[in-house]
C-alpha cells in the first residue's frame, strides 16, 4: 500500500498525505509551501466541484424526465432522497419555504459524496496523480479540508441571517438581539436596567450565532480528518510489511489489512452519519433563524 513511499520516513509520509495541492493565486504557480489567504487548494476544489456537479447532473437528468408514471431505478433513488429530506424538513422546520428542502438535499448528498471519497485507499489517487499527472500532492477527501467545511457553513450562516430578516424583519430581529434572553418587565426608572442588559444580550447572541457555523464546520472536518489520518497511520503501519522479511510481510500485511478493513467498516457508519448531521443541523439552524425565540417581548 505504501510501497512507493518506502524511501520516506513515516512522518513525512503522513505530512505528505495531509498537504493540499496548492495554487498560489499571487504568482499563479503550484507551490505546496504557499501560505496566506490567496492560495487555492486545487485538489479540494476540483474534487468538491466534480462530486457536486455529479449529483447535480443526476438530479437535473431526473428532473428533465420527471413524470407521474412508474418511476425507474435512478428516479426511485432520487425520489427516495427527496422524500427523506422533505420529511426531515417537515419535522424540524414546519412552515419552511421552498428553499430549505433543496438546500438540505444539496448539503446531504454533496457532503455524503465528499465523505465517501474517504473509503478509497489513501494512496490510490495520490499515486495516480503523481505518476500520471505529475502532481506533487493530492488530497481527495474535500471534507477533510477545513476550507471546504467552513465554506459551506459560512454560506449557511449567511442564509440564516437572510432567513431572519425575511421572516422577522429588521425590527423584529433587532428587538430579538437586544431583549433576548434578558429583559425585565418594568415601568418608570426601573426599566433603565434593561440598557446594560441589552449589551449582554447582544454579546450572548453573537456568541450563540457564531458558534453555529463554527461547530457545524469543525464537526464535519474533525470527524473526517481524524478518519483520514487513521487511514494514513494504518497505511504507515502496513508499510512495515516490506521491511521485515517474509514473517513481517505476512504479519504486518495481514494485521494491517484487518485493521484497515475494520476501520473502513466503522467509517461506513461515520460517513452517512456526518452527512446526515450536517443536513439536519443546517435545517435546525435555519428553522431557529426563522422562528422567534420563545415568548414575544
Amino acid at each position: 500500500m505504501a510501497a512507493e513511499e518506502g524511501t520516506h520516513d513515516s512522518g513525512s509520509y503522513v505530512v505528505h498525505h495531509l498537504t493540499n495541492l496548492k495554487l498560489d493565486l499571487q504568482t499563479m504557480t503550484l507551490n505546496e509551501h504557499a501560505t496566506g489567504f490567496w492560495v487555492l487548494n486545487i485538489d479540494s476544489v476540483v474534487f468538491s466541484v466534480v462530486l457536486g456537479a455529479l449529483f447535480l447532473f443526476l438530479f437535473l437528468r431526473v428532473a428533465a424526465r420527471a413524470n407521474s408514471g412508474v418511476p425507474t431505478g435512478v428516479e426511485n433513488f432520487v425520489e427516495m432522497c427527496v422524500e427523506f429530506v422533505s420529511n426531515q424538513v417537515k419535522e424540524v422546520f414546519p412552515g419552511a419555504g421552498s428553499l430549505v428542502a433543496p438546500l438540505g438535499i444539496t448539503v446531504f448528498i454533496w457532503v455524503l459524496l465528499m465523505n465517501i471519497m474517504d473509503i478509497f485507499p489513501v494512496d490510490w489517487f495520490p499515486y495516480i496523480g503523481e505518476h500520471v499527472f505529475g502532481l506533487s500532492h493530492l488530497r481527495v477527501v474535500p471534507s477533510t479540508d477545513v476550507n471546504i467545511t467552513f465554506g459551506m457553513s459560512i454560506s449557511i450562516f449567511v442564509l440564516m441571517y437572510i432567513f431572519s430578516f425575511v421572516y422577522k424583519g429588521p425590527i423584529g430581529l433587532g428587538k430579538e438581539f437586544l431583549t433576548h434572553p434578558f429583559y425585565i418587565h418594568a415601568h418608570g426608572p426601573a426599566a433603565l436596567v434593561n440598557i446594560p442588559l441589552m449589551a449582554v444580550n447582544v454579546v450572548l447572541r453573537l456568541v450563540e450565532d457564531l458558534a453555529k457555523p463554527v461547530s457545524l464546520a469543525l464537526r464535519l472536518f474533525g470527524n473526517l480528518f481524524a478518519g483520514e489520518l487513521i487511514f494514513v497511520l494504518i497505511a504507515v503501519f502496513s508499510s512495515n510489511a516490506f521491511n521485515h522479511g517474509v514473517a513481517g510481510f505476512i504479519g504486518f500485511g495481514l494485521f494491517g489489512g484487518l485493521i484497515q478493513f475494520l476501520w473502513a467498516a466503522f467509517h461506513l457508519l461515520v460517513i452517512p452519519l456526518q452527512a446526515f448531521v450536517f443536513m439536519v443541523l443546517t435545517i435546525v439552524y435555519l428553522a431557529s433563524a426563522a422562528q422567534s425565540h420563545g415568548e414575544d417581548h
Binding site: F37, L40, S44, D145, N147, I148, G151, M152
Partner: peptide, 9 residues
C-alpha cells in the same frame, strides 16, 4: 484558511 473557502462558498 485560504481562498478555497470563497470558491467553495
Amino acid at each position: 484558511l485560504n481562498a478555497t473557502l470563497i470558491v467553495q462558498s
